[in-house]
């Protein structure tokens, strides 16, 4: 995975010695590195003491047959082979999750950005709106959601009551295999509060003086949006994109709660991690679940790598200009 865009470009190049002489460590350079490691000390401690052990353990387990109750047995690549050759449900879960990510992430981000812009400034009572719009996100993983979602998309739910006005008899959206995934996508969009808040925070990072200068130059509001807001917001958009992709691929709770932990009806909401969970804890195939986790890691890391590569072309950092 490449993380080029994150590396600090030789900043203020004029202050630095020419590139060929950087090989010889300058004292200030070493001091900077030393300071960096001090800043990173808690993180390094956490990485080596807490994070990395279980991760490596799961990598080992992915090459074993492990039923949790007895010691793991080494099976080589068998878990990985089974996944792609024999397991139809694995492929189903991959398909379901991909559709979910591809549809819900752009929708949610567009929604969050639009509302962040609408709620940024200019109207009275905005803090109240912001809070109200954020409320659904507070409920996102609550057990109450399973019931609430049926109240909206059930046979006698809100959506169908509205449709009935127009004489349309809607299906039971949550439990119809053809529409169930759609409602989960909407559930994801509904909890757009987190990216919205991050966008709001990002908008506030943009110095007001830029807008004042632009206004003096006669730029309209749309123009200001395109040439100031949008470019300066790209690191935040990028952040939300990368994180939402990672998080959506790992979506678990919503399907778990709404489908009562089955991924049903008829596997139509069988998210990848839900299937992984069922394998690990219900079928006692933790080795297989671990292998699935590493396949997912490779997929997500690949996509994140692509995201970072692409980011060179559209993300503008304040520190590299």
């Amino acid at each position: 995975m490449t993380t080029d865009s994150v590396a600090v470009e030789p900043r203020a190049a004029q202050l630095r010695p020419p590139a060929h002489r950087r090989e010889k460590k300058q004292p200030w350079k070493r001091r900077e590195a030393r300071t960096a490691y001090v800043f990173l000390a808690p993180w390094f401690l956490g990485l080596f003491a807490i994070t990395i052990g279980p991760i490596l353990a799961s990598l080992y387990l992915s090459f074993t047959e492990y039923n949790l109750l007895e010691d793991p047995k080494w099976v080589g690549w068998a878990n990985y082979a089974e996944m792609f050759t024999e397991d139809d449900r694995f492929l189903t879960s991959l398909k379901v999750t991909t559709i979910y990510v591809v549809v819900s992430v752009p929708m949610q981000l567009a929604f969050a950005l639009a509302l962040a812009l609408a709620l940024d400034r200019g109207l009275c009572g905005l803090p109240i709106y912001r809070s109200i719009y954020y409320l659904p996100s507070l409920l996102g993983g609550s057990v109450a959601i399973s019931i609430l979602w049926r109240k909206i998309f059930g046979t006698d739910g809100l959506v169908n009551s509205v449709l009935a006005i127009f004489g349309i008899q809607g299906p039971g959206w949550v439990t119809d295999p053809d529409t169930a995934l759609g409602t989960l996508i909407l559930l994801h969009v509904w909890t757009f509060g987190a990216p919205m808040v991050i966008f709001l925070a990002g908008l506030r990072q943009i110095p007001q003086s830029y807008y004042e200068a632009a206004a003096v130059d006669g730029a309209g509001r749309f123009r200001q949006f395109r040439s100031i807001t949008l470019p300066l917001l790209t690191p935040i958009i990028f952040f939300n994109l990368v994180l939402e992709v990672i998080k959506s691929f790992q979506s678990f709770t919503q399907s778990f709660i709404v489908s009562n932990g089955t991924g049903g009806p008829v596997d139509s909401t069988l998210f990848y991690t839900l299937y992984l969970y069922l394998k690990g804890f219900k079928s006692f195939e933790m080795g297989y679940a671990a292998a699935m986790a590493w396949v997912l890691l490779v997929i997500i890391a690949g996509l994140t790598g692509v995201n970072f590569l692409m980011s060179k072309y559209w993300v503008f950092y304040g520190d590299t200009k």
């Binding site: 119809d176 295999p177 049903g264 069922l278 219900k282």
Partner: peptide, 21 residues
């Protein structure tokens, strides 16, 4: 052993039939 999954398996396959899949 394995009976813990029976409920899920039966439900999934039954629903496939009932939904006409």
């Amino acid at each position: 052993k394995g009976a813990m999954q029976m409920e899920d398996i039966l439900k999934r396959n039954s629903e496939e039939v009932m939904f006409g899949k």
